[in-house]
Nucleic acid binder design. Sequence first.
DNA 1: CCCCAATTGTTCAATGTTCAAGTAGATGCC
DNA 2: GGCATCTACTTGAACATTGAACAATTGGGG
Lengths: 168, 168
Amino acid sequence: MTTAPDPGPHRWLSDEEQRVWRAYLHATTLLDDHLDRQLQRDAGMPHIYYGLLVLLAEAPGTRLRMTELAKRSKITRSRLSHAVSRLEKNGWVRREDCPSDRRGQLAVLTAEGAEVLRETAPGHVDAVRQALFDRLTARQQKALGEIMTIVAEGLQPDEEGADLPWLR
Amino acid sequence: MTTAPDPGPHRWLSDEEQRVWRAYLHATTLLDDHLDRQLQRDAGMPHIYYGLLVLLAEAPGTRLRMTELAKRSKITRSRLSHAVSRLEKNGWVRREDCPSDRRGQLAVLTAEGAEVLRETAPGHVDAVRQALFDRLTARQQKALGEIMTIVAEGLQPDEEGADLPWLR
DNA sequence: CCCCAATTGTTCAATGTTCAAGTAGATGCC
DNA sequence: GGCATCTACTTGAACATTGAACAATTGGGG
């Protein structure tokens, strides 16, 4: 039940919706910080940077165009550019010119980058499991997946050809 | 002696778990960015700062000790200190000495701060509704609340201050 | 061809965040 | 009281992020 029966000029959140929203904010803030610290300590990089290495590792040839990597990781090209520069300084990624488009750059996972991933992935998976999956029932895990898929799709600017093996 | 497909000593995420985890990362990243932009545009501050004003507005006397505000907003005291300095520069919050503990500081919502909140809250609620609640069934909203409460509680360092009489 | 709009990736300046001190006041114990 | 220790908050420097502006390149009509 919201407020008065009057449609009013504005529709607020009900008490229950507020509780849900606040729980969401708390949980996501805490989990994000938690994983950031875990990875900063164990892998020397923030969570988002780690995610970039994972995406590169999965890609054919362990390389992706900058824009494609930005799309998959849901960050801006600007942020990605900074991130890749930092990862490059660490020796975990290198840049290559794109052969088919002279504007393009490829981010390529280096052997060292793959090694870091190999070393730190188990600890990270443990952290995710411990903070999330181990605490939820199978039913809740399923629900979470459905909910998050809906939300992500609603906010996706316009995802075309998202999953095609885009590589040249 | 184990054989080739041995998963080893470590328990990875199943395919389904990976899907859920990725959906979670995508949705939370997109939603957080979305709301940050919405509030930066309409209220001139990031989402977290807005949340601080909300917490102050709800508190008795529209004021809270720094540490208490940090706990409720789930951010570090250091980050809070910087944030309050910025909000103070905007004239939306002011600091006061705590009468009962001379180490303490109170963050107090100013009239201007309350005004900003009044002006921007409807738009923010709309954004949250549109991105989240309007897309979920009642059942999903309930599940989301339960799941997020579990996750938050699992990561809470140790919440003993939740015993306030007027807590809602 | 030639223009012009769109795309790619980077850069700069302003802003926000983190982590490791640092200061000052409270607390407890003899 | 005197001393160690804990708590509250701030600070500064290093690092990360944002958004706008930019140069280079592409591609689609006339």
